[in-house]
């Protein structure tokens, strides 16, 4: 076989990678030990961080990409894909993660934004990106920039699922509202939500987002995870919810099973028994406006 026949970093490979994560749980971890616990519990991937979002909130200051040393430590500990976060618009942090060989980059509102006008031009990278969104317009703008996967923003580090629910209902509801419209009406709608017309038309035709759509931002229990799946998520990210709970190992396993059997209340009930305390959590309404992470990037 001739080497020039191989093609790397194509759209199909990026979106295909995201498809392989479906029905799975991606867990935030801060060291090799947590990564191994996540893998053993059945996580489909881990998100390598210096701090989980709940601790990023507490620490304050500027939150940046994790130390490459930390990311490499986690990559060496597990066989499942390793993701890591960059600040919104920080394309050099993204170049660094690509050079390290992480499997997917999360351009994340959990970190302090580096650019208030532009997101990273994700089409320039050979590894796939996931980005947060609160509604259909935001999701399609990210896909247009090259995101291979979308996730709800929710409100990270709160252990409160209400914002993830709001965002998932918004995205799914807006897609349902596209059904039965003429092409002309879809183009008009695209203008209203500031999204590319071809992606609005594609979403209408498919009855879903054109890429894999996960839920994130506040999932803290197996029932939270199963609810997001029933609302239409293809899988979930769990951030602080696992390693801020009383028994991370059991919580991790329980959420993995609840996502796989999200439509079977018997299973969700069984895995939810005796898990110990979930993370304490924050009432989103008590946050000051500058503490609300989902407003970052649009």
């Amino acid at each position: 076989m001739k080497l020039e026949e191989l093609r790397f970093g194509t759209e199909l490979l990026k979106r295909g990678f995201a498809s392989m994560q479906k029905g799975g749980v991606i867990m935030d971890v801060v060291d090799a030990e947590q990564a191994r616990i996540a893998e053993e519990a059945g996580a489909v991937a881990v998100m390598a961080l210096e701090r989980v979002p709940a601790d990023i909130r507490k620490a304050g200051g500027v939150a940046r990409m994790a130390d490459p040393e930390k990311i490499v430590e986690i990559m060496e500990a597990v066989s499942i894909p390793v993701m890591a976060k960059v600040r919104i618009g920080h394309f050099v942090e993204a170049q660094v993660l690509e050079a390290l060989g992480v499997d997917m980059i999360d351009e994340s509102e959990v970190l302090t934004p580096a650019d208030e006008q532009f997101h990273v031009d994700k089409s320039k990278f050979s590894i796939p990106f996931v980005c947060g969104a609160r509604d259909l317009g935001e999701a399609l703008r990210r896909i247009n920039e090259g995101a291979a996967m979308v996730r709800t923003k929710g409100e990270a580090g709160t252990g409160n699922v209400v914002e993830a629910v709001r965002h998932m209902r918004a995205i799914m509801g807006e897609i349902r509202a596209l059904q039965g419209r003429s092409t002309q009406e879809l183009i008009d709608r695209a203008r209203e939500i500031e999204a590319p017309a071809d992606l609005v038309i594609e979403s209408a035709k498919m009855g879903r987002l054109p890429v894999v759509n996960f839920s994130a931002g506040g999932i803290a229990t197996p029932a939270d995870a199963a609810m997001m799946m029933q609302l239409g998520a293809d899988g979930v990210f769990v951030g602080s919810g696992i390693f801020k709970s009383a028994n991370p190992q059991r919580m991790a396993r329980a959420i993995v099973e609840a996502v796989s059997h999200y439509d079977d209340p018997q299973v969700v009930a069984r895995v939810s028994r005796g898990l110990g305390e979930a993370m304490k959590g924050i009432d989103v309404h008590t946050l000051r406006e500058d503490e609300v992470l989902q407003y970052r990037g649009r």
């Binding site: 093609r7 790397f8 199909l12 490979l13 295909g16 990678f17 796939p128």
Partner: peptide
């Protein structure tokens, strides 16, 4: 993960016994 990580994922036209022309093979990790 015989090829490595996601950056080593690739597409190639592959000869498969039983097919008369190459198959579009997508290797992902």
């Amino acid at each position: 993960n015989a090829f490595g990580r996601q950056r080593e994922s690739h597409e190639v036209r592959l000869d498969v016994a039983g097919l008369d022309s190459p198959f579009p093979a997508v290797f992902i990790r």
